Amino acid sequence: MKWTELSIYTTNEAIEPISNIIHEAGASGVVIEDRQDLERIWEDRFGEIYDLNPDDYPEEGVRLKAYLPVNSFLGETVSEIKQAINNLLLYDIDIGLNKITLSEVNEEEWATAWKKYYKPAKISERVTITPTWEDYQPVSTDELIIELDPGMAFGTGTHPTTVLSIQALESHLQNGDIVFDVGCGSGVLSIAAALLGADKVYAYDLDEVAIQSTKLNAKVNKVDEKMQVKQNNLLQHVTGTADVIVANILAEIILRFEKDAFDRLVPGGIFITSGIIQKKKSAVKNALEEAGFDIVEINQMEDWISIIAQKPEGSR
């Protein structure tokens, strides 16, 4: 079979929404070539465990790559992707250059092209993310290893929004907690929560590809018995309560269910939000406070913001 490599030149801000668009169009994986990765400085205790080749990255901005089968519907699919990306402007998302190129690749090139971009990365005090094909050995007894296959996942789990979310889970999750993961994508946050001591994790996503990806990755990481994965729109029709709710999605989506999150948390429960760009920080913070939350902390990595909020004790 022949495949088409779809390259989209865009901005860091648009990575996650465009990745979702590509997955919804039928691509099984997305390669993220972010120029900022070459300049990123991690804190001393964290860091990528590999060297990056500048020749593999665009001269500026971000390049997303995905692979689509060459068939009679390819032209229509590409047109739909272009339109969906242009529609992001309606949400005040900077899509940058928005240049799209196509090139044909053979089966072998498609199967291996993205692997060179994905190596083990330690992203918090305890959590390291590694691809399934790497023989990575932990360097400490309390290190937690998450194995992901980006051929079926939404990215590699090392984007700043994911890193901020996992670091927040590591800081605030307690053994035995119940966790809701809203917009689970690859399931990386659900898996992290399970490994960090959650008693039960409920993972929700509207996209069927994300549901299957989360189920697969949960089995690979041997935490599937702790997880319940369900196709669902945010927290609609969700019953029960959680100790922690985590949502690594667009700010515009967070603003659609902050009140539902408040209602579904136990008193004293924690709401971890990520995927927030700088210019949306105030809107999300204000909405959380209006819903009844206390802001616990606001963290930033590069241009991305994570807000951790708490439902006050004594609240209903």
Rank of each mutant, 00 (worst) to 15 (best):
S190F: 00
S190Q: 00
I191F: 01
I191Q: 02
I191S: 03
A192R: 08
A192Y: 10
A194N: 07
A194K: 02
L195W: 05
L195E: 07
L195T: 04
L196I: 06
L196D: 01
G197M: 09
G197Y: 08
A198F: 06
A198S: 02
D199V: 07
D199N: 12
D199M: 13
D199R: 11
D199W: 10
K200Q: 10
V201D: 00
V201Y: 00
V201T: 05
V201N: 03
Y202Q: 12
Y202F: 13
A203M: 05
A203Y: 04
A203T: 02
Y204N: 02
Y204V: 05
Y204R: 09
L206N: 13
L206D: 11
D207M: 04
V209C: 12
V209Q: 13
V209A: 12
V209I: 15
V209T: 14
I211E: 04
I211A: 09
Q212H: 15
S213N: 08
S213W: 05
S213R: 01
S213H: 03
T214F: 09
T214V: 06
T214R: 09
L216W: 15
L216P: 10
L216R: 13
L216Y: 15
L216A: 15
L216V: 14
N217Y: 00
N217V: 06
A218W: 08
A218C: 07
A218H: 01
K219C: 11
K219E: 13
K219V: 13
K219F: 11
K219Y: 11
V220C: 07
N221E: 03
N221V: 01
N221H: 01
K222S: 12
K222W: 10
V223T: 07
V223I: 07
K226P: 06
K226D: 04
M227L: 03
M227H: 02
Q228N: 14
Q228C: 13
Q228E: 15
Q228A: 15
V229R: 04
V229Y: 06
K230H: 15
K230I: 14
K230L: 13
K230C: 14
K230T: 14
K230E: 14
Q231S: 13
Q231M: 12
N232C: 08
N232A: 00
N232P: 03
N232V: 03
N233W: 12
N233S: 12
L234S: 07
L234G: 06
L235T: 04
L235I: 10
Q236L: 15
Q236S: 15
Q236C: 13
Q236R: 14
H237F: 15
H237W: 15
V238E: 10
V238I: 11
V238N: 03
T239S: 15
T241V: 13
A242T: 09
A242S: 08
A242W: 03
D243R: 09
D243M: 04
V244P: 07
V244N: 09
V244R: 01
I245Q: 02
I245F: 02
V246R: 03
A247H: 03
N248E: 00
N248C: 11
N248Y: 05
L250E: 10
L250A: 09
L250H: 06
L250M: 12
A251L: 05
A251W: 03
E252W: 11
E252S: 12
